[in-house]
Amino acid sequence: MDGHKFRIIRLWLNKTQEEFAKFLGVSLATVARIESGSLDVSPRVKARLVSRIDLDEDFFAFYEKMRKIS
């Protein structure tokens, strides 16, 4: 997962970077660095995402839309 996908998930959840950081139990700086591409998404953060969200068909439609305009 890259920072762009990470950001799209945050936007899908309608969270600010600060809210998303709290949701994942990481720092705001970590979220910002991942989204900017200066930090890879760690296995720990990926595991937390998987355990806390359910990506359904609506998400994948949203993802495709965001991918095209970004």
Rank of each mutant, 00 (worst) to 15 (best):
A29W: 11
V31L: 00
S42Q: 11
Q17M: 08
F20Q: 01
L49C: 03
F23L: 04
E64Y: 03
L13N: 03
E18Y: 13
S27I: 13
R10S: 06
G25E: 03
R7Y: 11
T30M: 06
R10F: 13
S42F: 14
I9T: 13
L13R: 06
E19T: 09
L13A: 06
K68S: 06
F62G: 01
T30V: 11
A47N: 09
V31P: 01
K5L: 13
L11D: 14
R48S: 12
K22F: 08
K65Y: 09
A32I: 10
T30I: 06
F6Y: 13
P43G: 08
M66H: 04
D56I: 02
Y63M: 06
H4S: 14
L55H: 05
A47K: 07
E64F: 04
A61N: 13
A32P: 03
F59G: 04
S70I: 05
V45Q: 11
S42C: 12
R33G: 08
S70M: 03
L55D: 07
F6W: 10
V31N: 01
F20M: 03
L55C: 07
R52H: 11
L39A: 15
D40E: 15
T16D: 07
R44A: 13
F59T: 07
R44S: 14
V45N: 12
V31M: 01
L11T: 14
F62K: 01
I34C: 05
K46F: 09
R33E: 14
E18Q: 12
K5W: 10
I34S: 00
F23A: 04
A61V: 07
E35Y: 02
Q17W: 11
R48D: 04
L24H: 05
T30P: 01
I69H: 01
K15H: 11
S36D: 10
